[in-house]
Amino acid sequence: MTEKGKTNKDLADALKIAPETVSSWCTNSAQLSIKKLFEVAIYLNIEAGDLLVSSKK
């Protein structure tokens, strides 16, 4: 989200969910559903698979 200039609140507002839910996804304390995964990808204008692959090298 940082690369796209988006915050947890921006994503939460777009998906009509609580910002705490997005935060739990970002900290890996909860996993999003496949449906939400695709909604996030559409919102960020990226491929869903990009959200599943670690960017750490």
Rank of each mutant, 00 (worst) to 15 (best):
T7K: 07
S55F: 04
N8R: 14
T21G: 01
K35P: 01
V53W: 04
G5K: 08
L11G: 00
I17C: 06
N45A: 13
E20L: 15
K56H: 11
S24I: 01
I34Y: 13
F38P: 02
N8S: 12
S29R: 15
V40Y: 00
V53K: 13
E3V: 12
S54N: 14
I42L: 10
P19R: 15
L15Y: 04
L15T: 05
L37N: 07
A41N: 13
E47L: 09
I17R: 04
S54Y: 09
P19D: 01
K57R: 12
L51K: 11
K9Q: 12
K35L: 06
A30S: 14
S29E: 05
V40F: 06
L32R: 09
D10T: 04
L11D: 00
E20F: 08
L44W: 04
D13M: 12
S23K: 13
G5N: 02
E3T: 12
T27L: 12
V53P: 01
D10E: 09
W25S: 08
S33E: 03
T27Y: 01
K4P: 02
A12H: 03
K9L: 12
N28P: 03
T21M: 14
S54V: 07
E20M: 14
I17D: 01
N28T: 08
T7Q: 09
I34R: 15
A48E: 06
I42H: 08
N45D: 13
P19C: 03
D10R: 09
A12K: 10
K9N: 02
M1D: 00
A12F: 00
D13V: 09
L15K: 06
K6F: 04
M1K: 09
I34K: 14
F38L: 07
L32V: 06
L44G: 05
C26G: 00
A14N: 01
I34E: 10
L15I: 11
N45I: 04
I46R: 05
K57I: 09
K9G: 01
S23Q: 08
K56M: 10
N45G: 10
L51C: 01
K36H: 06
S29F: 00
K36E: 00
A14V: 07
V22Q: 03
S23I: 03
T2I: 10
E3G: 15
I17T: 04
D10K: 07
V22I: 13
L44Y: 00
V22E: 03
N45Q: 14
V53L: 12
E3C: 05
D10W: 06
S23W: 04
S29D: 05
